[in-house]
Design a protein around this nucleic acid. Structure first.
Ligand SMILES: [Mn+2]
Ligand SMILES: [Mn+2]
Ligand SMILES: [Zn+2]
Ligand SMILES: [Zn+2]
Lengths: 165, 165
DNA sequence: ATCGCTACTGCGACGCGTTGCGATAGAGTG
DNA sequence: CACTCTATCGCAACGCGTCGCAGTAGCGAT
């Protein structure tokens, strides 16, 4: 049952005016203001969800979790906010083997991603491990690759073991 | 104006029974049969389109070109056939910055892909250029990465020049 | 408290693929 | 040629995301 758009009133967030306790998250509000952007109940919902998540989450999952807090949540708003937050460095995204988005919340260190096509598991790969190639690309072509967005698909050690080839 | 499903009759391909002249393409028919798969008018249409394409093409573009030959073409059939052809090594796909599929027809050599986020241009990167990293991943983790599926997003030399950072 | 600017929201429609289903038609066999 | 088996097809519905539009509401200034 989709609620119609009911401005203000029943949309008030439990603590609408304030930001989450964690200093990392609370700074977001100020950084938005500093860029002439705004602090809204919808954005607070998304930040609450992100603060409660960690590791990699798909866009659809985030939408779903927002709806758990506010059933009136709209996908377009979530995705647009994720774009904004990516500009702020709060989240990073890459794409799974099927092209779907996966978000990493507050990545401590830059890293790329490995996806096993067979078993579906995935791993993070540190910047150091790919640095040689990135250097080569920078030197030879002047291309500066975004590590966070990197996702390599292939077969993991276990799955290669099973079916030699 | 969508034509209803009109089996057989007006679906006959100009040279329905035969395969394209090029030996590479004609072999496809035999290789399908060898695997217990079938040669259909729809598949011939798609192969005609692929034979007339080169470099990278999006899935949507391929569907559109098929419709130019046979307006009754259905997306699901095209995508399913592309899957089959990828198994045969006739095409390879990767994903653009937005996650959309791009197909490379008959790649002579394995290669990865670079996409500039700013100007939107893209380049191929030879296997040799990535080999060091792939070796490292194989040695340290036993992970065998698919080069053809690799797509790095970032900023090209020109676009870095313009806005230093 | 009120006002004005404009960032942001929800909506609706669209684009790209994918999937399950029942009907069709390849193609090997006799 | 008829017959059978089943791969493939078209369809319809769905999932993920994006975009333009018109109305709303943050927020800084008065
Ligand atoms: Mn893929
Ligand atoms: Mn992306
Ligand atoms: Zn695996
Ligand atoms: Zn560029």
């Amino acid at each position: 049952m989709a609620r119609p758009y009911t401005p203000g009133v029943d949309r008030a967030h439990p603590a609408a005016g304030s930001a989450p306790a964690d200093p990392v998250w609370s700074s977001v509000r100020d950084r938005l203001h500093a860029s002439g952007l705004r602090w809204t109940p919808q954005r607070r919902t998304i930040l609450d969800v992100l603060a409660a998540s960690d590791g990699h989450v798909t866009g659809a999952e985030l939408v779903e979790r927002c709806r758990a807090i506010d059933p009136a949540t709209t996908p377009s708003t979530v995705y647009r906010t994720l774009d904004v937050l990516e500009d702020l460095g709060v989240v990073r995204h890459h794409h799974g083997p099927d092209g779907r988005e996966e978000f990493h919340v507050l990545p401590e260190a830059e890293h790329g991603h490995l996806h096993c096509r067979v078993c579906g598991r995935s791993w993070e790969v540190g910047a150091a491990e790919v640095e040689p190639m990135l250097d080569a690309l920078r030197r030879h072509r002047g291309f500066e690759a975004d590590i966070s967005h990197m996702a390599l698909v292939g077969r993991c050690a276990d799955c290669r073991e099973i079916r030699r080839g």
